[in-house]
């Protein structure tokens, strides 16, 4: 039963600085034996040790002061920075992951490619999250160690501005969903275009699958590809910026506008380029539909024209309404 006591003492002092361990051991041993009778039973020892309590807590009491990796004063800032850094890291890793994995994969079927790209990207995002967590925590541990927060002093000028009206707030959830969808579908589109795999096929009357020629002309698609990638980056960048800003300001709306215009203009120029549609596709479609090549080609061009006008109108409405919202609502004035 003396062994039980020694084990208890060891469990307490191993948590303490080395130089006080022996002293605390002696203290504690003397105190424990004082609480026991001359020839204590095991039951008695157990009662006394239970009375002293959990060794972890007792060690804490001996140490005197609470210890923190990041002290409570810094906790708020830590959590805010952590949240932003994790979001940004995840987004960057997702973009970089999707792009690099979709250009360099082993699977050949579209489904296999999607699964492979998805799995690898998830892997990248998870390790980016751990890296972000590690970096932020480390930085805050250092800040906490060298910069103590004065309890009552503060810079009166550093008080934050009052938040703007609620209607100017940007929903974080909507932004995150938008970013994720943009990354996933943008990357898939870019991938499909890169390998010129945009086909339109349909089930023929005989039940057979009509494998038509690629829809777009390869040389045009490839020359547009860098612009599509830039467009995806700008769109995701603008959405991320909105996510971080959290509300519509002139700067945010400007960024949003640039993003919309750049991606819209690229899409419209692409859809209206001469000879966009693969000649082989037109020929095959014409033969399937019993039309002349010219009729098919004109029909497609008309359809694309209507679509581009529709696209342009939507973009213009979106930009105008956003600016109206941003500029028309004045910040709350505080009367003295």
């Amino acid at each position: 039963m003396s062994e039980l006591i020694e084990r208890y003492i060891y469990d307490v002092v191993r948590r303490l600085p080395e130089k006080v361990r022996e002293e605390v051991s002696d203290d504690l041993r003397a105190n424990i034996f004082d609480m026991l009778s001359e020839e204590p039973s095991e039951q008695e020892v157990i009662i006394v040790l239970k009375d002293l309590g959990n060794p972890r807590r007792l060690a804490n009491n001996y140490r005197g002061k609470q210890r923190y990796l990041i002290s409570p004063e810094w906790m708020d800032d830590y959590l805010v920075v952590l949240k932003i850094v994790l979001i940004v890291f995840a987004i960057l890793a997702a973009i970089a992951g999707v792009i690099s994995h979709s250009l360099d994969h082993e699977a050949t079927r579209v489904f296999g490619i999607i699964v492979e790209v998805f799995a690898n990207t998830v892997n990248d995002v998870v390790s980016a999250l751990f890296t972000g967590f590690g970096i932020v925590t480390l930085v805050f541990v250092v800040i906490d160690k060298y910069k103590k927060v004065p309890s009552s002093e503060f810079d009166i000028k550093s008080l934050p501005e009052l938040p703007e009206r609620k209607s100017l707030q940007i929903s974080r959830t909507a932004m995150i969903i938008s970013i994720i969808f943009n990354i996933i579908f943008g990357s898939i589109l870019i991938y499909l275009l890169y390998y010129n795999k945009v086909y339109i096929g349909w089930i023929g009357t005989d039940g057979g699958y009509q494998n038509l020629a690629p829809l777009f002309k390869e040389s045009i698609v490839l020359s547009f590809l860098p612009f599509f990638i830039i467009s995806l980056f700008i769109t995701v960048g603008a959405e991320s910026y909105k996510l971080i800003a959290g509300q519509w300001t002139t700067k945010v709306t400007l960024f949003h506008t640039i993003g919309k215009i750049v991606s819209g203009v690229i899409a419209i120029i692409f859809l209206r380029s001469v000879d966009l549609i693969n000649a082989e596709f037109i020929a095959k479609a014409a033969s399937v539909m019993d039309l002349t090549n010219n009729q098919v080609s004109e029909g497609i061009t008309r359809g694309l024209n209507i679509f581009t006008i529709f696209l342009a109108v939507i973009i213009v409405i979106d930009i105008l309404s956003t600016w109206w919202k941003t500029l028309n609502i004045k910040p709350i004035k505080i009367n003295k």
Partner: peptide, 10 residues
Amino acid sequence: ESGTLYPLLR
């Protein structure tokens, strides 16, 4: 508690 008193004395 004993677990409070002894560390306090130290």
